[in-house]
Design a protein around this nucleic acid. Sequence first.
DNA 1: TCGGTCATGTAATGGGTTACATGATTGA
DNA 2: TCAATCATGTAACCCATTACATGACCGA
Lengths: 185, 185
Amino acid sequence: MALRYAVLGLLSKENKSGYDLAQTFAARVGHFWNAHHTQIYRELSKLETEGLVRHQVVEQQERPDKKIYELTEPGRTALYEWLFESPKPPKMKNEALLKVSLFHLIPPEHAMSFFRKSRDDHRTILGYMQALREEEFGDTPTREQVGEYLTLDFGIRFMRAWIDWCEDAERVMARFQTETAEEDH
Amino acid sequence: MALRYAVLGLLSKENKSGYDLAQTFAARVGHFWNAHHTQIYRELSKLETEGLVRHQVVEQQERPDKKIYELTEPGRTALYEWLFESPKPPKMKNEALLKVSLFHLIPPEHAMSFFRKSRDDHRTILGYMQALREEEFGDTPTREQVGEYLTLDFGIRFMRAWIDWCEDAERVMARFQTETAEEDH
DNA sequence: TCGGTCATGTAATGGGTTACATGATTGA
DNA sequence: TCAATCATGTAACCCATTACATGACCGA
């Protein structure tokens, strides 16, 4: 029941096609919400039959036509009412942590390279996020920008926490390396 | 395709009933994985027909009987093989952040009390997690404990990052309070 | 020529949630 | 007496993922 509000929320900022929405989910919202394009198309037609959004077709040359969606007044009202309800508890599915919880079963060296790789991957993402923040908000956000500024700020903190954790976890695993490995240099 | 490994993983540590598994998900694994009891019962019977787990009935007086599940050898092998595959990207559904991304639409005072409440809630959870860590691992984990130690450590870092973010977010929103509110004392 | 981007979607399947059902015990 | 805990599950529904389909353009 909440994907609809994610869609309405993005449309409240800018009119978009289903394709655009999918891109936005992947690029800007992915660290706290995700949605597949097939889901988005289905949700958009449902929202349209309920009268919460409407679309107009934009014809393009040398490109497929687009359906640009916008909020209707009932859509804006529904979004606004939902905003004041208290949020449901977050749901996380993190396979990496599921595996880490069983790391007593694998060789410490394998665990250590797992953490190094994960740290590097998250450093790359952190770099993108920091660049995006500079580019979009500069030093301080305006009133209109504050929501997106705060969620991006959380994303950056999350990435930093993950990276720090990876570094410490590698050190913890190093304590369990075999003597042969310690003698290795 | 991954709930099965969550179940196998928990069973690899201790034989449990479906009910016990549900409790464990809620209490210890909830910050990186969640599963409803109806799902767990379905998955357990699927795993049993595939021969990855088996159960025995434990009769109790003044309580309903239990089915205690344990891994079979093929189950242990399947779990071990999965452990060495690289993890799929995490999936998050965080309604709170979805709402925060639209906080330019609500009165700053409302946003500020949202962040204060969220900070307090997460401080309580952090307290539980820190107590659990002391109780179970003391200063340093043993080789057998290291997986659970590391995931709990991540949970604690996540809670701290959330709490710090709430505090800063409240300050950011304070800048947008109306003059009337500032004159208020 | 092969894969990627743009743009839409349908159909089938798989995973997750809600409602319901049972029944004894224990504490408010 | 009412709600909660212990313990199991089924059925119906809703949400999410994967596979498939179309078709033109662009760069390697």
